[in-house]
């Protein structure tokens, strides 16, 4: 039986220095372009301190990981970072299989990423 397809959504919040993308649903080769567009828009606006909160992300495929791989150098080159937070275990496992935890800041809670950005700005 097919059940209702889960879509992918992005909710954008921001404070003075930090942009938060709350991503939810399923991130695959079809939905990855949505995330890519959001990241591009932030980078174009010179907003480089980016947190991607994954608390409602239920699924990620390599196309989703590819978006992070494609933009991290640009963002870091501009003095910012993309920090990932609140992943469920299954989503984290996919990042882990590819060795992301040594290359990206991944936190359990969004507040930890916020603190990290605030500390690095001082």
């Amino acid at each position: 039986m097919l059940t209702v397809m889960k879509n992918f959504h992005i909710n954008h919040r921001h404070s003075d220095e930090i942009e938060v993308l709350e991503i939810s649903g399923e991130l695959d080769a079809h939905t990855a372009s949505k995330l890519e567009d959001s990241l591009k828009t932030l980078i174009d606006k010179n907003r480089h301190n980016i947190i991607v909160n994954c608390s409602d992300l239920e699924y990620i495929a390599s196309a989703g990981l590819g978006v992070f791989m494609a933009y991290i150098e640009d963002v870091r080159g501009l003095g910012g970072d993309i920090k990932l937070t609140n992943m469920n275990e299954r989503v984290y496992n996919v990042f882990d299989l590819l060795g992301f935890p040594t290359l990206y800041d991944i936190f359990d809670e969004e507040e930890e990423a916020v603190k990290q950005f605030q500390n690095s700005d001082q």
């Binding site: 495929a61 390599s62 196309a63 990981l65 590819g66 978006v67 791989m69 494609a70 933009y71 991290i72 150098e73 640009d74 996919v94 299989l97 590819l98 060795g99 992301f100 290359l103």
Partner: peptide, 24 residues
């Protein structure tokens, strides 16, 4: 086998699906 660090630098993003399949 993909080198993620290298791919980040060169902003490449493909080639990891095959690796994941073998791992999974």
């Amino acid at each position: 086998k993909p080198d993620i660090r290298e791919q980040m630098k060169s902003k490449k993003r493909g080639g990891v699906g095959v690796y994941l399949i073998r791992k999974l």
